[in-house]
């Protein structure tokens, strides 16, 4: 798999650290914390994921990828995700 890092360009996935589904958002209080930490949708198909470019620009990315084919659709910086 190659991941199109917006800062470094197309890079081998070996340079990245995987951190799973990007959808869960940390709740403010204890309500929902169990689900945030422990349960997953575990999607079969397209999924938005967090990847960290540890051996590159050290940016956190949100990568679109299909879990049934490993096809990568694209990547953007996670810190710009809300904008």
């Amino acid at each position: 798999m190659r991941i199109p890092c917006p800062f470094c360009g197309d890079r081998d996935s070996l340079e990245f650290v995987y951190r799973g589904d990007a959808a869960p958002e940390r709740p403010d209080g204890e309500d929902g914390l169990y689900d945030y930490v422990y349960t997953r949708d575990n999607l079969a198909g397209p999924m938005r994921e967090h990847w960290y470019h540890a051996q590159g620009c050290r940016n956190w990315l949100i990568v679109g990828r299909d879990t049934t084919t490993h096809e990568v659709f694209g990547a953007r910086l996670a810190k710009r995700a809300g904008q």
């Binding site: 798999m1 996935s13 589904d21 994921e49 990828r65 049934t68």
Partner: peptide, 13 residues
């Protein structure tokens, strides 16, 4: 391999 997958196959690394 280290990433979520339902593909029944992995990658070269």
């Amino acid at each position: 391999d280290g990433y979520n997958s339902y593909a029944s196959r992995g990658n070269l690394p």
